[in-house]
């Protein structure tokens, strides 16, 4: 079973109304289901991260439905306009239904 280690990069602080950039990476082989085992000739079953969501103070701000053509260790970069301090939660879900989560707070001033 795949193990996934999520990492995120976003500023610790921002000013109210600022559009910040959020970068996320999760280590995952993204087995496409297209490859064949060299020895047995059998198809290697698909096992990918198929869904990503980013929520802020409980509200979804960004998400992605992911298909096998996304590279191993899926990278996603997106933006958010911050209006208040709070907490981000990032969730990745794979084909087995396993979820991988990480959180990060941001302090918004002004």
């Amino acid at each position: 079973m795949a193990t996934a280690k999520p990492r995120v990069k976003l500023p610790d602080k921002a000013t109210k109304g600022e559009v910040i950039t959020i970068k996320t990476l999760v280590s995952h082989p993204m087995e496409s289901g297209q490859r064949k085992d060299r020895k047995t000739g059998e198809k290697i079953p698909r096992m990918i991260i198929n869904k990503f969501t980013a929520t802020f103070n409980g509200q979804q701000v960004f998400g992605a439905n992911i298909e096998p053509a996304v590279s191993a260790n899926p990278y996603l970069e997106f933006t958010m306009k911050v209006e208040e301090s709070g907490k981000f939660e990032f969730v990745w879900v794979d084909d087995a239904g396993t979820t991988y989560k990480t959180e990060k707070g941001i302090e918004v001033t002004g």
Binding site: Q59, F62, V70, Y75, L76, E77, F78, T79, M80
Partner: peptide, 11 residues
């Protein structure tokens, strides 16, 4: 809330 409709990934 996205602020901009911008996203980057690798394919």
């Amino acid at each position: 809330m996205s602020g901009e409709a911008t996203a980057t990934t690798r394919i």
